[in-house]
């Protein structure tokens, strides 16, 4: 009980910029829950469970809570969403991305210290870049699912994802720096 109260004090004493980042966690969780519901997965209890887990991540982003949320989210999708491709996959993936990024930033800095604007901007730009690539993956997956390559199964998707990952790694390694 004392630990929970300490977490609450930590949240109440957090700086405004830090609170905004924590609001991003909740935004990501709500986005995923909404997309999950629109994709026809789960029921009210599952959606409320996601929101509750999202609130737990807001309260303690530096603990296991974000991992639990991600695990629960992917498992719920797998168990209850029938379609192998749905337009709501995109907001769901973006919700997961936003939640993870905001939780990682919150866990990286002391809650009471204001987060510099340049840091928030750079993290937002990175998230935007990964989100753009996710849109690409989502589009390709849609194409492959709607026009399946006979006999290949998910192999094209795996190859495409690996190729994207390699390209991203190459970009990150040799990107021009501002220093």
């Amino acid at each position: 009980m004392r630990e929970l109260r300490e977490l609450w004090v930590d949240l109440r004493s957090a700086s405004r910029s830090h609170l905004r980042v924590r609001a991003g966690i909740l935004g990501g969780a709500l986005l995923f829950a909404l997309a999950y519901a629109l994709a026809g997965g789960g029921n009210v209890i599952a959606w409320l469970g996601l929101v509750a887990l999202g609130l737990a991540v807001v309260l303690q982003p530096h603990t296991l809570a974000p991992g639990l949320f991600l695990g629960y989210a992917v498992a719920s999708w797998w168990a209850t969403v029938e379609a192998t491709w749905h337009w709501a996959l995109l907001p769901a993936a973006l919700g997961i991305l936003v939640l993870h990024t905001a939780a990682a930033l919150c866990a990286s800095v002391p809650a009471q210290a204001p987060v510099p604007v340049t840091v928030v901007r750079r993290w937002a730009e990175r998230t935007g870049l990964v989100a753009a690539l996710t849109v690409l993956v989502w589009g390709l997956a849609g194409l492959l699912t709607l026009r399946p390559a006979t006999g290949l199964g998910p192999l094209p998707g795996i190859v495409g994802l690996t190729l994207l990952a390699v390209l991203l790694a190459a970009y990150v390694r040799w990107r021009p720096t501002d220093r």
């Binding site: 192998t84 491709w85 993936a93 991305l97 993870h100 990964v130 993956v137 699912t145």
Partner: peptide, 12 residues
């Protein structure tokens, strides 16, 4: 494949 799309941003 939808699960791959779901975790694609995390993989990146």
């Amino acid at each position: 494949p939808d699960l791959l799309v779901l975790v694609a941003p995390l993989a990146m």
